[in-house]
Amino acid sequence: MTEPLASIPMVIADRVVKSFGSHTVLKDISLTVNRGEVVCVIGPSGSGKSTFLRCINHLEKLDGGRLTVDGELIGYRQRGDKIYELKPKEAAAQRKDIGMVFQRFNLFPHLTVLENIMEAPLQVKRQSRAAASARALELLARVGLAEKAKAYPASLSGGQQQRVAIARALAMDPKLMLFDEPTSALDPELVGEVLDVMKQLARDGMTMIVVTHEMGFAREVADSLVFMDGGVVVERGEPREVLTNPQQDRTKAFLSKVL
């Protein structure tokens, strides 16, 4: 890329389309996320929020449009007017810079907390054990779980597991973090501890896209709020503005049900 990097938005989705068989989940999504920006995505279930998130790190293949992260086309390479599919290795290389946190945590149950965090730095970045371990312990301290390094995931509460999952994603030093309903599988009293870690991350300047049902979090932390429905972006704006004064009827209908 020859343009000055700082001026390129972190994520540009340009008319993104994604279908599963005959079912078109993402009809036409255009969205720009700037560096250091925190974007919350809300919408009814089945609206395509999670699918969009999974397209950003190419867990799902796009069927139409363009998606770039940090100026780099995701999943494809463009030469002239031809588009080439990336090799699995190249796609994996793109993913290592994009952290993802899942609704169900997806920690590796056969590895300890520390090993969970060290796995990708060791395998993908070929870091030394000492370096990976030092970094993992530092991240564990950051999410408030330094004393759990040797525990197995099954012995942790849901909130603790999700904080470990965040630390695991951060261990790859991502430039972008994707959160797929990170608190939806948690007991209500455990939601706060995960949101606190995410708030801290936002304050540190991480670029984040968060699919969530936590309106309070969106209001407090997000720079911008996106409402998706039926595979399109219905409305986007300043969170307070969207939540208190939605412009579209569909947004109004949705918010009247969840607020």
Binding site: L59, I98, R104, P109, A120, Q123, A165
Partner: peptide, 25 residues
């Protein structure tokens, strides 16, 4: 399936995912 998804999202290759995550479990 969330296991291979998490491993893939971390940038691990298919064979690394098999060897390190799926087969041990």
């Amino acid at each position: 399936p969330g296991q291979s998804e998490a491993s893939t999202a971390l940038g691990m290759s298919w064979s690394q995912t098999m060897r390190r995550i799926i087969i041990p479990q």
